[in-house]
Amino acid sequence: MLGITAAVLFFIAFLIDAATISTNEVFSSSNFMLIGLAALALHVAGIGHGWAVRRRGQGRRR
């Protein structure tokens, strides 16, 4: 999930940079890239991997 979030943030940063949209300092392309890098680092570290709800005893039965 964090990997997808990072990809979206990188895409937004690219659009801001490519379109040369003038934004305030909070929504600059470099800030989006830094937040995307943080999300990507958390994804690689394994944070957010266990967000899916796991049910006990619901395995494959033969």
Rank of each mutant, 00 (worst) to 15 (best):
F32L: 14
A41F: 13
R61L: 10
A39T: 03
T23G: 01
A13F: 08
M33L: 10
M33C: 05
G57Q: 10
G57H: 11
N31F: 08
L15H: 05
G3C: 04
I35K: 04
D17F: 06
L15T: 02
A7D: 15
F32Y: 15
V53Y: 03
V26F: 09
E25D: 11
H49T: 07
N24E: 09
A39Y: 05
G48R: 06
L34N: 11
I4C: 05
M33K: 07
G36I: 01
G50P: 00
Q58G: 01
H43A: 13
A18F: 11
D17I: 00
G36K: 01
L2A: 11
G50T: 03
G50C: 09
N31W: 06
G3Y: 09
I47N: 04
W51K: 04
L15S: 06
A39W: 02
G3V: 01
H43K: 07
F14I: 01
L2Q: 08
I12Y: 11
L37H: 01
F32C: 10
F11E: 10
R62P: 04
G46W: 10
N24F: 12
H49Q: 09
V44Y: 13
S30Q: 15
G48T: 00
I16L: 15
L42D: 02
L40D: 03
V26E: 14
W51N: 06
V26K: 14
A39S: 15
T20V: 03
S22F: 13
A39F: 12
R54G: 02
M1Q: 04
I47H: 11
L9H: 07
L2T: 01
R62L: 12
A38Y: 09
A45K: 09
L37K: 00
T20Y: 06
R60K: 02
L9I: 00
I16E: 03
L9P: 00
L15C: 13
S29N: 09
A52D: 05
V26I: 14
V44Q: 08
N31S: 09
A38S: 11
R62F: 13
R54D: 06
A39I: 00
M33I: 10
S30C: 02
A38Q: 04
A52W: 00
A19F: 15
S22D: 13
L34H: 05
A45N: 08
V26H: 08
V53H: 01
F32Q: 03
A41S: 13
G50D: 15
L42Q: 06
L37W: 13
I12W: 09
R60G: 05
L15M: 13
G59V: 01
H49G: 05
F10S: 11
F10K: 08
A7T: 05
I47P: 00
A6R: 02
R54E: 10
N31R: 13
I4D: 13
R62N: 08
A52K: 01
F11C: 07
V53A: 09
A39L: 10
S22E: 12
A13P: 05
R62T: 01
L9F: 14
A13V: 04
T23L: 13
Q58V: 04
R55N: 07
F32M: 12
T5V: 05
G50I: 02
L9C: 10
A18M: 09
G50L: 12
T20G: 04
A45R: 06
R55E: 05
I12V: 15
